[in-house]
């Protein structure tokens, strides 16, 4: 054939062609035999076209150009391209630029509207407050604002107590 399709993942000639219609949008993926095997296309139980689309939509040029890395876990966009999964929850912040365009094709919407872990969030806001108060405290001590420092210390004690109650 004159112009064979190339595999979306490794650019060898593609022999497996998949089309899936999701919410009236047509998604097409072309794969070579090896990648199709490896991605489990022949085993529909473990196969999700969405996973593939997501990998195919990440072109290598873009990743080299951005050169971002998750500060929490050291994950890079190239790792994502290889695995199709992120390294840690913080990766979602680090790779926002890559993720956002993908989400639209992948999901019904781009903003969560379901269950919220209320108790965990309350705990988190207390932790955040504690961290901030500790910063304030050390700054107040450095600047010799002892009244502020005392106030921070009292507040820290209060928050610590509240955290203790929330936990376990």
């Amino acid at each position: 054939m004159a112009n064979p399709l190339k595999c979306d993942l490794c650019s060898k000639p593609a022999t497996v062609h998949l089309t899936q219609i999701l919410d009236n949008k047509v998604h097409k993926v072309d794969l070579c035999e090896d990648c199709a095997q490896e991605k489990g296309v022949t085993d529909p139980s473990g196969f999700s076209l969405a996973d593939l689309l997501l990998k195919a939509s990440l072109n290598p040029e873009a990743t080299v150009a951005t050169g971002v890395r998750c500060e929490q876990c050291g994950f890079t966009p190239n790792d994502f391209k290889k695995q199709g999964r992120f390294g840690c929850p913080a990766c979602y912040g680090a790779f926002k630029g890559i993720l956002d365009p993908m989400l639209e094709g992948m999901h019904k919407g781009i903003v969560h509207s379901g269950k919220v872990p209320q108790k965990a969030l309350e705990r988190k806001s207390l932790y955040d407050k504690l961290t901030q108060l500790e910063v304030d405290l050390s700054e107040a001590i450095k600047a010799e604002r002892y009244e502020d420092a005392a106030r921070c210390r009292d507040e820290i004690n209060q928050v610590r107590q509240a955290v203790g109650q929330k936990q376990r």
Binding site: M106, H107, K108, G109, I110, S113, G114
Partner: peptide, 9 residues
Amino acid sequence: NQTTLGESE
């Protein structure tokens, strides 16, 4: 279900 984001459970 295919999608998980954008709708409630």
